[in-house]
Amino acid sequence: MLSTESAATVRATIPAVAGALDTITARFYDTMLGERPELLDGLFNRGNQASGEQRQALAGSIAAFATMLLDNPDERPDALLSRIAHKHVSLGVTEDQYVIVHKYLFEAIAHTLGEAATPDVVAAWDEVYWLMAGALIAMEARLYQEAGGTGRDVWRPWTVAERHEQTPDAATLTLEPGDGAPAPDFRAGQYVSVRVRMPDGIHQARQYSVSGWDGSRRRITVKRLRAGEDHPAGEVSSLLHGTAAPGDTLMVSTPAGDVTLSEGDHPLVLVSAGIGNTPMVAMLRHLADHDSARRVLVLHADRSPQDHAHREEVAALVERLPGATAHTWYEDGHEGSEEDRVYLGDIDMSRVEVPADAEAYMCGPLPFMRAVRSELLKSGLPARKVHYEVFGPDLWLGQA
């Protein structure tokens, strides 16, 4: 917890600091990556840097952490920290990098706040930073240990064994270990990072859900993002979609992610949009492989049947689960009947009855998940029973 003196200072200054966080984090990233460009090679996502989403996520997480320390001084906000820790583990973040971040972050704070950055103010926020960093370092060390390694050995070569075209813009890659070592364990809902060398020589990593498995093989689905030619967003998915072929080698990280299927016999609600159904496919496959009789509502929204990746696979998995029912909404295409539960338009939660004791999992664009979450809460589900996965900077941290 924060010391009494620091808590008072943080409480007094949090409006000013929170209001300046976007400016602080912008300067922080510009200065750090300008002086330490090697950090951009394989660690930081330059698409998120260009869009500003990375600095927004960092600012939001710092403000949320400080607020939680003040509001609940006897509790550590593990739910907030866990998502960050898992993302860091999938990229191989190490303890020494927190020292680098601290240096440039506090230089940015001092520069932005000017005379307001008194020694007392800096010391109080320094305490906030190291409480957050220390908790993350401990979490990440535990996750690395559970995976049987360290942050310096998360990357392994995997060979593309098969490629299957899901839709014109989505391809499923089946991977097998390229080094002969056993495949690491993972839980349904987790993801891996894939690191590739871009045409300009810079390495970039992106996260993809493990949607299927067969012995030592693992499967991911890559959806091509059609970004502008001069914008780095979508550069990795476009490269993988356009070039990955059987026989190629990809560098793949240790599985990570804390949005995983819970055990028990209570009902489940799996909600997705677009390629956000990949963790749901893994959860359905896990349930089917264990002959689960749990009640499962599978709700999915997509552009059209032709854009719906894993459509036939999900239908087959639902068929294997006696307690599962699927409802699908398409923006374009024909409207099905009530009997086949295929609808035209946006997802409409009034068409389904959410069990009061259900646990919900969501993956898709943030506006979609915000709307669905609101409906789930109105239906009576407690907020702690509604989980979400987002790939890229989590702009919802501290708000969900």
Rank of each mutant, 00 (worst) to 15 (best):
L2H: 05
A8Q: 09
A20H: 02
T31S: 10
T31R: 14
T31D: 14
L40Q: 15
L40I: 13
R46D: 15
G47P: 09
D71T: 12
D78H: 08
L81T: 10
H88V: 13
K103V: 10
K103T: 15
H111G: 01
A123R: 13
W125F: 06
G134R: 12
A138N: 11
R142P: 03
Q145S: 14
W155N: 08
V160D: 06
R163C: 05
D169R: 10
A170C: 09
A171C: 06
A171Y: 01
T172W: 00
L175S: 07
P182F: 05
Y191S: 04
R197P: 00
R197L: 10
G201E: 07
I202D: 03
Q207L: 02
R226Q: 12
G234M: 11
H241D: 09
G247T: 10
P255G: 11
V271F: 03
G274P: 08
G274N: 08
G276N: 04
G276K: 02
T278E: 05
P279S: 03
V281I: 06
A282W: 05
M283Q: 13
M283E: 06
H286G: 03
D289S: 14
H290M: 11
S292L: 08
V296L: 05
Q306E: 15
D307I: 10
H308A: 14
A315S: 12
L317W: 07
V318K: 08
L321V: 13
P322W: 05
V342M: 01
G345W: 07
V352K: 02
F368E: 08
A371P: 01
L376W: 02
S379D: 12
S379H: 08
H387Y: 02
E389P: 02
V390S: 05
